[in-house]
Simulated assay, not measured.
Amino acid sequence: MSVLSSASPEKIYKLARDLSKLPAWASGLATGSLTLIDANSLELDSPMGRVHTEFSPINSCGILDHTVILPDGTKVLNPFRVIPHPTGSELIFTVRPSENFEEDCQAVSEDLERLVSLVESA
C-alpha cells in the first residue's frame, strides 16, 4: 500500500520516526499511553492490547520498519519506507495477508493519510 505526499521524504520520516507522536497518526498501532524504552523501542496501548514495538535504528534511507510483539509473544514485522517521489515522497507500507486484510488495508491507508496531513499542515 502506498500514499503520495508533497512533503519531502525527510519531513515525513522525521515525524513518523518521532515515537512519541505515534498516537497522533498511527491509530492502527497506538491508541493510548506509551512508554519510550529507548530511541528505537516502546511499549504502547494498541487495538491488539499492550504491545512492545521495536523500530529500525534511525537512518537516512527512510526505513521505518518495525516489529510489533503482541501480548501473546507473536512478532509481526511491518516493512515501512518513505522514498523520494517526483511530487515529494511516497510512503510504502506492506500489509500482510490476514483474515482482516481489507480492514487492515483501510486502517493503514487512514493512518498514512493522517501522517501526510500532519506533515503537510505543519
Rank of each mutant, 00 (worst) to 15 (best):
K21N: 03
S6G: 10
F101I: 07
Q106M: 09
K21A: 12
E103I: 09
L44T: 11
V119Q: 02
S121I: 06
A7Y: 08
P57F: 08
V108D: 01
V68P: 00
S60D: 14
P97I: 03
V76Y: 00
T74N: 08
S8A: 09
N78M: 09
Q106W: 05
L22K: 00
T87D: 14
L22Q: 03
I37T: 10
S89P: 08
H66A: 10
V76M: 12
P97F: 01
E103A: 15
D65N: 15
N78Q: 14
E103W: 02
A122L: 08
L112I: 11
S41Y: 00
L91D: 09
I69H: 05
V68N: 00
N40Q: 14
D72C: 09
E54P: 02
S33H: 06
L29C: 03
G32D: 02
A122E: 10
P47E: 11
H85E: 13
I69A: 08
R96M: 09
G88N: 04
R50A: 10
A26M: 05
A16L: 04
L77A: 12
P71E: 04
V76N: 11
D72P: 11
S60V: 11
G32M: 06
E102F: 10
F93I: 06
D111W: 00
P86S: 08
H66L: 07
S121Q: 14
I37H: 12
D111G: 07
P47R: 11
A24D: 15
I63K: 09
A26H: 07
P9C: 08
V116H: 01
T31E: 08
A30E: 07
I63R: 06
E113R: 15
D18L: 13
P97Q: 04
L34I: 01
L118D: 01
S41C: 05
R17E: 03
V108A: 12
A39K: 12
S6W: 01
G49S: 01
A39L: 03
I12V: 07
